[in-house]
Amino acid sequence: MAFPRSDLAAPAPTTGRPETAPTTVKIVVAGGFAVGKTTLIGSISDIDPLRTEAALTEHSVGVDDAGDRTRKTETTVAMDFGRIALPGNLWLYLFGTPGQDRFLFMWDDLVRGAIGAVVLVDTDRLEQCFPAVDYFEARGIPFVVALNCFDGVARHGIDEVRAALQVPANVPMIYTDARARPATKQALISVVQLAMQRLTGAPAGPPA
């Protein structure tokens, strides 16, 4: 194999860019507003979480605060994300979903090609995660439900939450702490394991 322009006098490469581009994969972090998605991403990301924006033209139907029935609005939706470099020239991106239900339609773009998702739940505001759970369930996207323990205290039992959310037993449900790297690590591991089980056809639930 010939390498163009390589000679002994060639200067050392000035960039850190490897010859072969990394393979990129992503995991989506979903959940209600201010549940700790960006905190979770920041607890494990190599880079400080970045914020990107998607400009939307929304055609909303219904009555808004101003009493209009239909209107077209320009909205900007923010998504926070982080990146983890893994051995084997892999980059894992973590994308937080925009925090409001009315942007669910944007998630298709975000979720396309994802390994799976972590649905982060504040058990005091359980209803906030319903749209995310419904979304991933309806699309058959592997997801785990992670109950964020604020101040390290689990205020609700897993069985209790599972019953309230009506998620089947094959959806893993774990306690996590969005601020803690080991807990975040475990949540991501659960997602990847679930995705692998789906691929290999192994039972997704814990052994009976």
Binding site: I44, L188, L199
Partner: peptide
């Protein structure tokens, strides 16, 4: 996925 799993586990 195996590489991702190994990679995250080793973090």
């Amino acid at each position: 996925l195996e590489s991702v799993l190994d990679g995250i586990s080793a973090l």
